[in-house]
Amino acid sequence: MTSPAELCTGVVAYWSRKVLDEDTYGDYQSMGLSNTQYEILRRVVAAARPVRLRQGVDAAQHLIDRQARTDCADRYRDGASGKGPWQ
């Protein structure tokens, strides 16, 4: 079974790459994200943009993976409060 933190990491990393590539944000609900996950995505993309400019796409993608994993693990460290991973 996929943990809430792992699920968050996967969707945030996926959408962060799309946002970085397309340089536009969509609606968090159409992405299937919670408000909290969308906030994480925005932080991840904000951190990845200057890295992409200075160090290239590969470095930005590594940062996306690392920061999404860290931020999602922090968000769900105590579980999902019984409300499911989309909270």
Rank of each mutant, 00 (worst) to 15 (best):
M1Q: 14
M1C: 09
T2C: 14
S3N: 08
S3R: 11
S3M: 12
P4Q: 06
P4H: 07
E6L: 02
E6Y: 10
E6D: 12
L7W: 13
L7V: 10
L7D: 14
L7E: 14
C8A: 09
T9I: 02
G10E: 08
G10R: 05
G10K: 06
V11C: 10
V11K: 10
V12Y: 06
A13I: 01
A13H: 00
Y14H: 11
Y14C: 06
Y14W: 08
W15S: 06
W15Q: 12
W15K: 10
S16P: 07
S16W: 05
R17M: 04
K18M: 14
K18F: 09
V19T: 02
V19I: 05
V19C: 07
L20F: 06
D21K: 09
D21A: 14
E22M: 13
E22Y: 13
E22P: 05
T24N: 14
T24Y: 11
Y25N: 02
G26Q: 12
G26V: 14
Q29M: 11
M31N: 05
G32S: 03
G32L: 02
G32R: 03
L33K: 03
S34L: 10
S34K: 06
N35I: 15
T36M: 14
Q37C: 11
Q37V: 01
Q37D: 10
Y38R: 09
Y38D: 13
E39A: 15
I40P: 01
L41Y: 03
L41Q: 03
R42C: 08
R42F: 08
R42L: 09
R42S: 11
R43A: 12
V44H: 01
V45C: 02
V45G: 07
V45H: 00
V45T: 03
A47R: 03
A47Y: 04
A47L: 08
A48V: 01
R49Q: 07
R49S: 05
R49L: 10
P50Y: 08
P50T: 06
P50D: 05
R52T: 01
L53M: 11
R54E: 11
Q55P: 02
Q55W: 11
G56F: 03
G56H: 02
G56L: 07
G56C: 06
V57H: 15
D58E: 11
D58Q: 13
A60S: 01
A60P: 01
Q61A: 08
H62A: 14
H62C: 09
H62Q: 14
L63T: 01
L63I: 01
L63M: 07
L63E: 05
L63R: 00
R69F: 06
R69C: 06
R69Q: 12
T70Q: 08
D71F: 03
D71P: 00
D71T: 03
D71M: 04
C72F: 03
C72K: 07
A73C: 07
A73T: 13
D74W: 12
D74K: 12
D74A: 15
R75S: 12
R75T: 12
R75N: 12
Y76C: 05
Y76L: 08
R77C: 08
D78N: 14
D78I: 01
D78A: 15
G79Q: 01
G79I: 05
G79R: 02
G79L: 09
S81Q: 09
S81T: 09
S81Y: 06
G82R: 06
G82F: 04
K83L: 15
G84V: 04
P85I: 06
P85Q: 08
P85W: 13
W86Y: 15
W86E: 13
